[in-house]
Design a protein around this nucleic acid. Structure first.
Length: 427
DNA sequence: TCGATGTAGGGAAAAGCCCGGG
DNA sequence: GCCCGGGCTTTTCCCTACATCG
């Protein structure tokens, strides 16, 4: 029961982007090299037999070579190599049923593996909690079981992995096939964690270049994918197990407004708030309202100062886990977004988007005063101060004002130096 | 005229804060 | 409630151009 995740991650097109830059199938290569390729190297190393070489010296040499191929010390940091070794051991000591499941997903690092195991256990607990009737009805809803027959205990997990249909169809290989994965023509079969059909409304698309960029990338065409190496898809899939059950459209609760389908009524109600604009949850500190309870819980942390997610490297706290993950990349040096033009890598997609403007020459922020354009909004804001004469940064020593903080900092160093000189003179 | 110095401006990258969809 | 990703803002550094001064 292999789940060919790399297939799901595959960049299938070699297209030309708007600026004429060719989309390279780098992601596939990266995933192959870092994912299945690495696993193959690991197996070569682990399965190498004494008999395969002549004499202990040769055996040892071969092992060195294979180990190099697996851990790639020339490319990986010590931490990354340790990660591989620990991950391997972690997978090896897992209970067999978890091991079997997680190996198919092929996590790339320990945190992904841990997340997967936790999810597995969560699902398992959920299964135990649900009585058979409720479980069966849900399964019927999810995969449209033909009849209510005895279901094997691991069925729920396999529902999660979207397997059942294949087995029923007798087509075990079809999961890796992109046609088989999410065939809904309207929504390109993208399914959310709860089995809801994804598909963004794009209601926020005002004339903001960044927004447009992002919005484009959320649509099927994904111009960003054409231009960039979007490595993190592999992460998403391994971590979030995006191999989803295919839900029959007619079973979904549909939004009368946009037709989007949802498994649960509560999800539909929540979704409908995006149409009605209803925001029933108000912040007790600032009065700002939100459409969901979870939004307000997180929002109120801004006021309470609660930062429950602590960086294990520097101890800094963050309001949300995603912020912590982003921050931790500054310690680990993880930069999964690679520019296909120059090969530079970035820790965030937005950094890459901005960086790519240096290649394309795109300058979407235009000064309304003089017409000059800038690649970043910040640059435009600072530029506009030249027109308005605004100088918000004042030197506390001499009272001189500047339009930029960094200029003020440079300026203030003069005073520091003056003081130092005075000190020296005095001495 | 020339070099040193300070200021201004633009480009680019990185990080943090916050929000919202699934 | 969590995960994930995106938008926006702020900060910082580097480089270049220009004005001023000795």
């Amino acid at each position: 029961m292999a789940h060919p995740l790399p297939d799901l991650c595959r960049e299938t097109q070699l297209t030309n982007s708007e600026d004429g830059v060719e989309c390279v199938k780098v992601k596939e290569e990266v995933l192959d090299e870092e994912g299945t390729g690495s696993e193959m190297q690991r197996q070569h190393f682990r399965q190498f037999c004494y008999q395969e070489a002549e004499g202990p010296r040769e055996v040892c040499n071969q092992l060195w070579e294979l180990c190099h191929l697996w851990l790639k010390p020339e490319r990986h940091t010590k931490e990354q190599m340790l990660e591989l070794v620990v991950l391997e051991q972690f997978l090896a000591i897992l209970p067999p049923e978890v091991q079997c499941w997680i190996r198919d997903v092929d996590p790339e690092n320990c945190s992904q593996a841990v997340a997967l195991v936790e999810e597995f256990l969560l699902r398992q607990r959920e299964e135990e909690r649900l009585d058979g009737q409720a479980l069966r009805s849900f399964k019927e809803e999810v995969v449209n079981f033909p009849e209510a027959e005895e279901v094997p205990s691991d069925t729920w997990q396999r529902v999660i992995l979207g397997e059942i249909k294949e087995e029923e169809d007798g087509d075990s290989a079809s999961l890796g096939d992109e046609r088989a994965y999410g065939e809904e023509p309207e929504n390109s079969g993208e399914l959310g964690p709860q089995g809801t059909l994804l598909g963004r409304t794009g209601q926020n698309n005002s004339r903001n270049p960044d927004r447009e960029e992002a919005s484009k990338s959320q649509q099927g065409g994904c111009p960003e994918k054409e231009k960039m190496v979007c490595a993190p898809q592999g992460y998403q899939q391994a971590k979030g197990v995006t191999v989803q059950p295919r839900i029959q459209d007619e079973r979904l609760k549909k939004c009368p407004e946009c037709g989007k389908g949802f498994v649960w009524r509560s999800e539909l109600i929540e979704h409908q708030r995006s149409h009605t604009g209803e925001r029933p949850y108000s912040c007790s500190y600032c009065g700002k309202s939100f459409s969901r309870k979870s939004y307000i819980i997180k929002h109120e942390r801004i006021h309470t100062g609660e930062k429950p997610y602590i960086c294990s490297h520097c101890g800094k706290g963050f309001i949300s886990k995603s912020d912590l993950i982003k921050h931790e990349r500054t310690h680990t040096g993880e930069k999964p977004y690679i520019c296909s033009d120059c090969g530079r890598s970035f820790s965030r997609k937005q950094f890459l988007v901005t960086h790519r403007r240096t290649h394309t020459g795109e300058k979407p922020y235009k000064c309304s005063e003089c017409g000059k354009s800038f690649s970043q909004r910040t640059c435009l804001v600072i530029h506009e101060r030249a027109h308005t004469g605004e100088k918000p940064f004042k030197c506390l020593v001499c009272g001189k004002s500047f339009g930029r903080r960094d200029i003020l900092v440079t300026h203030q160093k003069l005073h520091t130096r003056e003081k130092a000189f005075q000190c020296t003179d005095w001495l």
